[in-house]
Amino acid sequence: MAKKKSSKGELTNNIRRLRFDHDEMSQKALAEKVGVSRQTIVAIEAAKYSPSLELAFQIAHAFETPIEDVFGYIPPPDE
């Protein structure tokens, strides 16, 4: 599971696992399905870029799964 840490919490995603579960869907195939470049999928998967809400829903739709199965959020620990 890829994680993106920030002071606002941690964003996680399961795109790599979901691609594997969907007949090893390639990053390019996913990119074409949701209408972005392969590099954007690479960046999202590596948690180097947080997609817009619209793109996040499109990715979830491409995997035919609810958005919470694709993306997760871990809030920062209370100080």
Binding site: S37, Q39, T40, A43, P51, L55
Partner: peptide
């Protein structure tokens, strides 16, 4: 050629 997407 990749068209510019939201990240670009």
């Amino acid at each position: 050629f990749d068209a510019a997407d939201e990240r670009d």
